[in-house]
Amino acid sequence: MAEEIKKRTTYLSRGALKPRAYVGDGLKVTFRTLVRTTIHRPNTIQYPWETLVKPECYRGRPGITLETCIACSKCVKICPNKCIEMVPIDHPTLGKVKRPQVNVARCMMCGYCAEVCPTDAMIVTPEFELAAYTRSALMYDPIKLQHERKPGYIVHSPMVTPSEMKSGRTDSHDKGDMAIKDTVQLDSRKCISCARCSKTCPVGAITMTDTGELNPKTNKPVKKPVFDDNKCVSCEQCVDVCPKSCLSMKEAM
Protein backbone atom coordinates (compact mmCIF):
# COMPACT_ATOMS: atom_id res chain seq x y z
CA MET A 1 0.00 0.00 0.00
CA ALA A 2 2.65 2.47 1.01
CA GLU A 3 4.72 1.68 -2.06
CA GLU A 4 1.73 2.15 -4.31
CA ILE A 5 0.89 5.49 -2.72
CA LYS A 6 4.48 6.58 -3.02
CA LYS A 7 4.53 5.73 -6.70
CA ARG A 8 1.29 7.57 -7.34
CA THR A 9 2.35 10.74 -5.54
CA THR A 10 5.90 10.82 -6.82
CA TYR A 11 6.55 14.37 -7.72
CA LEU A 12 9.20 14.86 -10.34
CA SER A 13 12.64 14.80 -8.78
CA ARG A 14 14.56 17.82 -7.63
CA GLY A 15 16.73 17.15 -10.64
CA ALA A 16 19.07 19.33 -12.63
CA LEU A 17 17.86 22.00 -14.97
CA LYS A 18 17.39 21.08 -18.59
CA PRO A 19 18.64 23.66 -21.09
CA ARG A 20 15.27 24.09 -22.75
CA ALA A 21 13.76 25.00 -19.41
CA TYR A 22 15.41 28.41 -19.51
CA VAL A 23 12.55 29.83 -21.51
CA GLY A 24 10.89 26.97 -23.30
CA ASP A 25 8.88 25.23 -20.60
CA GLY A 26 7.49 28.30 -18.90
CA LEU A 27 6.66 29.94 -22.17
CA LYS A 28 4.84 26.83 -23.30
CA VAL A 29 2.65 26.87 -20.20
CA THR A 30 1.80 30.54 -20.46
CA PHE A 31 1.15 30.29 -24.19
CA ARG A 32 -1.16 27.31 -23.68
CA THR A 33 -3.02 29.20 -20.98
CA LEU A 34 -3.26 32.23 -23.22
CA VAL A 35 -4.85 30.21 -26.02
CA ARG A 36 -7.16 28.39 -23.62
CA THR A 37 -8.37 31.48 -21.85
CA THR A 38 -8.82 33.31 -25.12
CA ILE A 39 -11.04 30.57 -26.50
CA HIS A 40 -13.04 30.14 -23.31
CA ARG A 41 -13.83 33.76 -22.75
CA PRO A 42 -14.86 35.41 -20.47
CA ASN A 43 -12.84 34.24 -17.49
CA THR A 44 -13.85 36.99 -15.10
CA ILE A 45 -17.16 38.50 -14.18
CA GLN A 46 -18.10 42.17 -14.39
CA TYR A 47 -18.84 42.47 -10.70
CA PRO A 48 -21.36 45.23 -10.09
CA TRP A 49 -23.43 44.14 -13.07
CA GLU A 50 -23.15 40.41 -12.63
CA THR A 51 -22.37 38.39 -9.52
CA LEU A 52 -21.16 34.89 -8.81
CA VAL A 53 -23.73 32.24 -8.05
CA LYS A 54 -23.72 31.78 -4.30
CA PRO A 55 -24.94 28.61 -2.63
CA GLU A 56 -28.14 28.95 -0.63
CA CYS A 57 -26.29 28.22 2.59
CA TYR A 58 -24.10 31.31 2.13
CA ARG A 59 -23.86 33.21 5.39
CA GLY A 60 -24.45 36.92 4.96
CA ARG A 61 -26.33 39.17 7.32
CA PRO A 62 -29.07 37.65 9.48
CA GLY A 63 -32.68 38.02 8.47
CA ILE A 64 -35.93 37.54 10.35
CA THR A 65 -39.57 36.67 9.88
CA LEU A 66 -41.45 38.79 12.41
CA GLU A 67 -44.54 36.58 12.49
CA THR A 68 -42.79 33.38 13.61
CA CYS A 69 -40.40 35.02 16.05
CA ILE A 70 -41.42 34.41 19.65
CA ALA A 71 -38.98 36.85 21.28
CA CYS A 72 -37.21 34.17 23.28
CA SER A 73 -33.85 36.05 23.27
CA LYS A 74 -31.83 32.94 22.45
CA CYS A 75 -30.11 34.81 19.64
CA VAL A 76 -29.22 37.60 22.06
CA LYS A 77 -27.59 35.14 24.42
CA ILE A 78 -25.59 33.20 21.83
CA CYS A 79 -24.30 36.17 19.82
CA PRO A 80 -20.50 36.25 20.33
CA ASN A 81 -20.26 39.95 19.55
CA LYS A 82 -23.37 40.95 21.48
CA CYS A 83 -24.74 42.79 18.47
CA ILE A 84 -28.34 41.61 18.87
CA GLU A 85 -30.74 43.44 21.14
CA MET A 86 -34.48 43.02 21.73
CA VAL A 87 -36.33 46.23 20.91
CA PRO A 88 -40.07 47.00 21.15
CA ILE A 89 -41.83 47.53 17.84
CA ASP A 90 -45.36 48.44 16.89
CA HIS A 91 -46.42 45.95 14.28
CA PRO A 92 -49.72 46.35 12.35
CA THR A 93 -50.83 42.76 12.94
CA LEU A 94 -48.75 41.61 15.91
CA GLY A 95 -49.25 44.70 18.01
CA LYS A 96 -46.63 45.85 20.49
CA VAL A 97 -43.99 43.12 20.62
CA LYS A 98 -40.28 42.77 21.12
CA ARG A 99 -38.18 41.64 18.20
CA PRO A 100 -34.39 41.44 17.69
CA GLN A 101 -32.43 44.32 16.27
CA VAL A 102 -29.01 43.50 14.78
CA ASN A 103 -26.07 45.83 14.65
CA VAL A 104 -24.68 44.60 11.35
CA ALA A 105 -21.53 46.68 11.77
CA ARG A 106 -20.50 44.40 14.60
CA CYS A 107 -21.98 41.18 13.22
CA MET A 108 -19.37 38.56 12.31
CA MET A 109 -21.79 36.46 10.22
CA CYS A 110 -21.25 33.35 12.30
CA GLY A 111 -24.84 32.17 11.88
CA TYR A 112 -25.28 31.17 15.52
CA CYS A 113 -28.48 33.22 15.88
CA ALA A 114 -30.13 31.20 13.13
CA GLU A 115 -28.72 27.95 14.47
CA VAL A 116 -30.26 28.34 17.93
CA CYS A 117 -33.57 29.91 16.84
CA PRO A 118 -36.25 27.46 18.03
CA THR A 119 -38.83 28.50 15.43
CA ASP A 120 -36.44 29.17 12.51
CA ALA A 121 -37.61 32.77 12.45
CA MET A 122 -33.99 33.91 12.31
CA ILE A 123 -32.30 32.97 9.04
CA VAL A 124 -28.98 33.72 7.42
CA THR A 125 -29.38 35.52 4.13
CA PRO A 126 -26.85 35.58 1.29
CA GLU A 127 -26.84 39.37 1.41
CA PHE A 128 -23.27 40.58 1.84
CA GLU A 129 -23.20 44.01 0.19
CA LEU A 130 -23.69 45.92 3.42
CA ALA A 131 -21.63 49.06 2.90
CA ALA A 132 -23.34 52.19 4.12
CA TYR A 133 -22.47 55.85 4.55
CA THR A 134 -23.30 56.05 8.24
CA ARG A 135 -23.04 53.72 11.17
CA SER A 136 -26.67 54.23 12.06
CA ALA A 137 -27.61 52.84 8.64
CA LEU A 138 -26.00 49.57 9.71
CA MET A 139 -28.24 49.29 12.76
CA TYR A 140 -30.83 46.93 11.32
CA ASP A 141 -34.09 47.29 13.24
CA PRO A 142 -36.55 44.39 13.10
CA ILE A 143 -38.49 45.89 10.21
CA LYS A 144 -35.34 46.40 8.12
CA LEU A 145 -34.03 42.98 9.13
CA GLN A 146 -36.89 41.17 7.41
CA HIS A 147 -35.90 39.07 4.44
CA GLU A 148 -37.55 36.63 2.08
CA ARG A 149 -37.20 32.98 3.07
CA LYS A 150 -35.80 30.04 1.18
CA PRO A 151 -35.26 26.54 2.58
CA GLY A 152 -31.50 26.88 2.33
CA TYR A 153 -31.42 29.97 4.53
CA ILE A 154 -32.51 28.00 7.59
CA VAL A 155 -29.62 26.71 9.64
CA HIS A 156 -29.96 23.29 11.19
CA SER A 157 -27.33 21.35 13.05
CA PRO A 158 -28.67 17.88 13.85
CA MET A 159 -27.03 16.08 16.73
CA VAL A 160 -27.25 12.98 18.88
CA THR A 161 -26.88 12.65 22.60
CA PRO A 162 -23.84 10.87 24.03
CA SER A 163 -26.03 8.19 25.61
CA GLU A 164 -27.62 7.41 22.24
CA MET A 165 -24.24 7.25 20.57
CA LYS A 166 -23.07 4.68 23.11
CA SER A 167 -26.17 2.56 22.52
CA GLY A 168 -25.56 2.69 18.77
CA ARG A 169 -28.49 4.78 17.57
CA THR A 170 -27.50 6.71 14.48
CA ASP A 171 -30.47 8.96 13.64
CA SER A 172 -29.79 12.51 14.76
CA HIS A 173 -32.24 14.93 16.30
CA ASP A 174 -33.05 18.34 14.97
CA LYS A 175 -33.53 21.31 17.23
CA GLY A 176 -36.70 21.13 19.29
CA ASP A 177 -36.58 17.36 19.70
CA MET A 178 -37.34 16.23 23.22
CA ALA A 179 -34.26 14.00 23.20
CA ILE A 180 -31.80 16.86 23.03
CA LYS A 181 -33.85 19.56 24.70
CA ASP A 182 -32.60 21.13 27.92
CA THR A 183 -35.44 21.42 30.39
CA VAL A 184 -36.07 23.60 33.43
CA GLN A 185 -35.98 22.19 36.92
CA LEU A 186 -37.58 23.76 39.96
CA ASP A 187 -36.26 23.71 43.48
CA SER A 188 -39.66 24.11 45.16
CA ARG A 189 -38.25 24.69 48.63
CA LYS A 190 -36.77 28.01 47.49
CA CYS A 191 -39.77 29.09 45.37
CA ILE A 192 -41.74 32.05 46.71
CA SER A 193 -44.59 31.72 44.17
CA CYS A 194 -43.93 35.12 42.62
CA ALA A 195 -45.06 33.90 39.15
CA ARG A 196 -42.42 35.95 37.37
CA CYS A 197 -41.35 32.90 35.40
CA SER A 198 -44.80 32.26 34.03
CA LYS A 199 -45.15 35.94 33.09
CA THR A 200 -41.85 36.02 31.21
CA CYS A 201 -42.17 32.71 29.39
CA PRO A 202 -42.44 33.51 25.64
CA VAL A 203 -44.33 30.30 24.77
CA GLY A 204 -46.61 30.01 27.80
CA ALA A 205 -45.09 26.75 28.92
CA ILE A 206 -45.25 27.67 32.61
CA THR A 207 -48.53 27.56 34.49
CA MET A 208 -48.96 28.36 38.15
CA THR A 209 -50.89 25.49 39.67
CA ASP A 210 -52.20 24.82 43.14
CA THR A 211 -50.13 22.52 45.26
CA GLY A 212 -52.99 21.89 47.68
CA GLU A 213 -51.19 23.53 50.55
CA LEU A 214 -52.32 26.64 52.33
CA ASN A 215 -50.07 29.47 53.28
CA PRO A 216 -50.25 29.49 57.09
CA LYS A 217 -49.92 33.28 57.30
CA THR A 218 -52.47 34.37 54.71
CA ASN A 219 -54.58 31.22 54.46
CA LYS A 220 -54.41 31.34 50.66
CA PRO A 221 -53.52 28.39 48.43
CA VAL A 222 -49.82 28.13 47.48
CA LYS A 223 -49.13 28.08 43.75
CA LYS A 224 -45.98 26.68 42.21
CA PRO A 225 -44.88 26.77 38.53
CA VAL A 226 -45.35 23.64 36.43
CA PHE A 227 -43.35 23.34 33.24
CA ASP A 228 -44.67 21.95 29.98
CA ASP A 229 -41.52 20.46 28.46
CA ASN A 230 -43.06 20.01 25.03
CA LYS A 231 -43.74 23.72 24.68
CA CYS A 232 -40.45 24.80 26.30
CA VAL A 233 -37.78 26.20 23.96
CA SER A 234 -35.02 26.22 26.63
CA CYS A 235 -34.57 29.96 26.36
CA GLU A 236 -33.65 30.28 30.05
CA GLN A 237 -35.51 33.57 30.49
CA CYS A 238 -37.28 32.11 33.51
CA VAL A 239 -33.92 31.08 34.97
CA ASP A 240 -32.62 34.61 34.53
CA VAL A 241 -35.69 36.32 35.96
CA CYS A 242 -36.13 34.11 39.04
CA PRO A 243 -35.43 36.29 42.11
CA LYS A 244 -34.52 33.36 44.38
CA SER A 245 -32.54 31.44 41.71
CA CYS A 246 -34.56 28.31 42.33
CA LEU A 247 -34.72 27.36 38.62
CA SER A 248 -31.91 25.56 36.85
CA MET A 249 -31.41 23.95 33.46
CA LYS A 250 -31.19 20.19 33.25
CA GLU A 251 -29.18 19.19 30.21
CA ALA A 252 -30.35 16.26 28.14
CA MET A 253 -27.39 13.95 27.88
Binding site: P158, V160, M165, S172, M253
Partner: peptide, 9 residues
Amino acid sequence: GPVRVKTPR
Protein backbone atom coordinates in the same frame (compact mmCIF):
# COMPACT_ATOMS: atom_id res chain seq x y z
CA GLY B 1 -23.86 8.27 10.69
CA PRO B 2 -24.43 11.27 12.91
CA VAL B 3 -22.08 14.21 12.58
CA ARG B 4 -22.50 15.94 15.90
CA VAL B 5 -22.90 14.86 19.49
CA LYS B 6 -24.44 17.01 22.16
CA THR B 7 -21.92 18.30 24.65
CA PRO B 8 -22.37 19.66 28.15
CA ARG B 9 -22.45 23.40 28.58
